[in-house]
């Protein structure tokens, strides 16, 4: 029974990572290394919280559809704007991608904590946390027959719609990247923008679209975390280092969202495995929390040693593109 609950929790832990890594993969395929993902997921989370908070304050009887759609829209809008800032800075102004991304992470976490604090004040709460259990309940609606199906139901069918959406999005992204014209052209932009440009592909436009769509997907991870995983309780800095884990997962999944699905469950499991080991002291727990990163580093060493071309990052990742002028 413990294994069943472990796997179920591992999947729940994995979903935000899956969103984050799918978003980052889409972004990186266009050659943009967006290290702002942790901040963007934060903004996605707080966006949903703001929407839900305002709607809950506005009315006492929540309409189930609106209670889901309003936070969803606010979350997507927030992370979209973050992606737009990143694209404007790195594509249009050709700012350094690493610096921009790290700045966005700091910025996003700051925004999240700022609004988290102000909403808590508005709600008259003493601690910087907001309780949105009513909205969360709609988000967490799951398949009602799951309980009757034993361990299978608990592991695979007990999740909310955002969890299945994450897997669906990852599968669709995988398909688009490898089987469609748009995917081919997007990959060309990330691999060799000069070649893409010569082939008549609008490099800047692809980078903008990929980054913004990637940000929106990643932002949903933040929303899932607040509404599903944390039962609608926003607490400042509660999201932790999941954003960085999502970026590590991109490497682990060798830039393929379908592998990311399994990788996310593995990472989720490694992230919580310390809770399932008895008699661990605090320092032991921290060591166990390190596992996903250790796995990523080991994995990086292995794929770097194998030198398989397909397992490498997009060749032009992190570099600005200038059309040669003369």
């Amino acid at each position: 029974m413990m294994l069943v609950s472990f796997l179920q929790r591992a999947i729940m832990q994995g979903i935000p990572l899956l969103y984050g890594s799918t978003g980052e993969i889409v972004t990186e395929k266009s050659g943009n290394l967006n290290l702002g993902i942790p901040g963007i997921m934060y903004v996605g989370g707080i966006g949903g919280v703001i929407g839900a908070f305002l709607y809950e304050q506005h009315t006492d009887s929540l309409n189930p559809v609106l209670a889901v759609l309003i936070p969803l829209f606010c979350s997507m809008l927030g992370s979209f704007l973050m992606g737009l800032i990143y694209s404007f800075l790195t594509v249009t102004l050709r700012a350094n991608q690493n610096v921009t991304g790290l700045a966005l992470t700091t910025f996003g976490v700051g925004i999240g904590n700022f609004f988290g604090g102000s909403l808590a004040k508005l709600a008259g709460s003493d601690i910087p946390s907001i309780n949105l259990t009513k909205t969360s309940k709609y988000f967490r609606t799951s398949f009602s027959g799951a309980k009757d199906l034993g361990w299978f139901g608990q592991i695979f069918l007990s999740h909310s719609f955002l969890a299945y959406a994450a897997i669906l999005i990852a599968i669709i992204t995988s398909f688009v990247l490898s089987h469609t014209r748009v995917g081919l052209q997007l990959r060309a932009v990330g691999e060799n923008p000069a070649t893409a440009d010569a082939a008549g592909i609008r490099v800047g436009r692809y980078k903008y679209f990929a980054t913004c769509i990637g940000s929106v997907i990643a932002g949903l991870g933040g929303l899932y975390y607040v509404m599903d995983y944390a039962n609608g309780v926003w607490s400042n800095d509660g999201f932790g280092d999941r954003g960085w884990l999502a970026i590590a997962l991109v490497i682990f999944a060798v830039w393929r969202p379908n592998i990311s699905i399994f990788g996310s469950i593995l990472f989720g499991g490694l992230y919580i495995v310390h809770m399932y080991i008895q008699n661990l002291d605090v320092s032991g727990q921290e060591l166990f929390k390190m596992l996903p990163y250790v796995v990523t580093i080991l994995f990086l060493i292995v794929i770097s040693m194998r030198r398989k071309k397909e397992a490498q990052p997009p060749a032009h990742l992190g570099l600005p593109y200038f059309r040669e002028e003369r």
Binding site: L184, R187, A188, E191, N192, A194, T195, A196, A198, A199, K309, E310, Q312, A315
Partner: peptide
């Protein structure tokens, strides 16, 4: 100078 994407 060829304009080709290496991993394609």
């Amino acid at each position: 100078h060829f304009k080709l994407v290496d991993i394609f």
